[in-house]
Design a protein around this nucleic acid. Structure first.
Length: 460
DNA sequence: AAACAGTGCGCG
DNA sequence: AAAGCGCGCACTGTTT
């Protein structure tokens, strides 16, 4: 791994960023150690009792008979063999010929043993990776996660000891997310305040490809790309798109497509999300009924090389994809081709922020790396400006204590909340676009306030 | 005992 | 022709 700032701007960004991040590391986050210790003890005994229950099941008895003293429920190898040989189910294989046993694969079996097994695994992950990870790195009630600028291929950052950038979220898994984030508390007389750049990768991508249709979506708050695409993929009127269908359009079509996914995989996951689950539209009509009206009757062949006619969902998605890149975002589509061709000719690509991307990269890599890197650099520049200059100039006691790619975690004095928000907006939006003249779309910052702990947002 | 690859899972 | 991108960490099973 090599880091190549090829312009002074790139060098300065890393230089100031490294100094600012070391200050962030030194600040650290306050940890509720009493809660943390108690939760670890409680969870350990809870997990023990769940394992005891698991051992009472028939399948577990077969497992012990098969593996004797070597029995180990953490062994994926054993788990897969038991499912296939004792339960008689079919599983896909991993790259190296083991039975695949990840959540997505085995939860399809819909079996009570598998459910109990996965729950134990989830709780073990929560305790062993996160709670213990936090506990073992906490000194005198403070945790100091590391933030690195020299580890990532795309010129993003990483975090370790522990990794502050992958703490579970209550909105994704309430039980473990709340349990873990509850450990992070503000200092006395303060709140945790997170500021994030909303949709920053989409914005930065637009600065590279300059597609007018995309810029319009970003600049006009009455337009909604995710809603429009949900309507198109499911063949329903725009007014019929529910909150959930919009979510599928965003996370199962638009983002995967931006990162280089293809219609076949998108079709399968869109189908599983809304059709197998019998989702309904705003008016309560099943989505499937709309598809039937368009003559689409089934998902289609699961062989990617088979023919996918227009009356299958996969065939339909193929046409949607062609329309997406060939008509709707034609300029973006052309940019992807040109950008990759330029890399093939020259052997490298340049980012707006003063770095060179070189070495062997796939087409998707070449297209994604500059966007991922430059998006993070918007945050990094703002962070350095705040830590090294602005917070000090404003004589604020509030401090920045962490960073997650597109968000800044602040430990903010209660009396300073409004000033802090104001200063962050000024730096993250106004000063940033002066510093980075290549930004040609509006930037937006959003705040989340956590008065008690990181687990509980204050309602706006 | 330490190092390594493979697998899985948490986040943006 | 290929077929989402980037990380860190825990754990198993094998090799040194």
């Amino acid at each position: 791994m090599n880091i190549f700032p090829d312009q002074k701007t790139g060098y300065d960004l890393l230089h100031n960023g490294a100094i600012a991040l070391s200050e962030v590391e030194a600040n650290g986050l306050r940890i509720d150690t009493k809660y943390l210790r108690k939760t670890i003890v409680d969870m350990d005994s809870k997990i023990q009792s769940l394992i005891k229950d698991l051992y009472q099941t028939k399948l577990m008895k077969k497992w012990r008979k098969r593996f004797g003293p070597c029995t180990n429920i953490n062994s994926r190898d054993q788990f897969g063999k038991i499912l296939v040989e004792e339960l008689g189910v079919e599983l896909e294989e991993t790259d190296h010929g083991q039975w695949k046993t990840d959540v997505l694969t085995v939860s399809r079996l819909d079996h009570p043993f598998v459910k109990a097994y996965l729950r134990i695994g989830k709780l073990q992950k929560a305790v062993n990776t996160y709670l213990r990870g936090i506990d073992s790195e906490t000194m005198n009630g403070y945790l100091h996660p590391g933030f690195n600028l020299q580890t990532v291929e795309t010129y993003r950052s990483s975090s370790n000891g522990p990794n502050f950038q992958n703490m579970p979220q209550p909105s994704k898994d309430f039980e473990t997310g709340s349990m873990i984030r509850r450990s992070f508390i503000p200092r006395k007389g303060r709140v945790l305040l997170e500021a994030d750049y909303s949709g920053v990768e989409v914005c930065v991508a637009a600065c590279y490809h300059k597609d007018p249709a995309m810029i319009k979506y970003i600049s006009d708050s009455t337009k909604d790309m995710h809603r429009d695409m949900a309507a198109q993929v499911y063949g329903i009127p725009i007014k019929e798109v529910t909150h959930e269908l919009r979510y599928f359009g965003k996370n199962k079509f638009i983002f995967p497509q931006f990162y280089g996914d293809w219609y076949f995989a998108c079709a399968k996951s869109l189908w599983a999300a809304a059709i197998l689950d019998e989702h309904k539209t705003v008016k309560g009509i099943p989505v499937m009924r709309y598809l039937k009206r368009k003559g689409i009757t089934c998902l289609g062949s699961l062989d990617p090389r088979a023919d996918h006619p227009k009356d299958t969902f996969i065939g339909h998605l193929k046409a949607v994809e062609e329309d997406f890149w060939g008509r709707r975002f034609q300029v973006y589509g052309q940019w992807k081709k040109d950008w990759y061709e330029s890399y093939q000719e020259n052997g490298y690509a340049r980012t707006y922020t003063g770095f060179i991307l070189k070495g062997l990269m796939s087409r998707n890599d070449v297209i994604n790396y500059p966007v991922q890197g430059s998006a993070f650099h918007c945050l990094l520049w703002s962070l350095a400006e705040l830590v090294l200059n602005e917070l000090r100039k404003a004589k604020m006691k509030s401090m920045i204590v962490g960073q997650i790619h597109d968000s800044l975690m602040g430990d903010v004095v209660t009396d300073e909340i409004e000033d802090y928000k104001c200063l962050l907006k000024e730096v993250m939006v106004d000063k940033l676009i002066k510093e980075f003249p290549w930004i040609i779309v509006p930037m937006k910052v959003e705040f989340d306030l956590y008065p008690k702990s990181w687990a509980e947002k204050e309602k706006e």
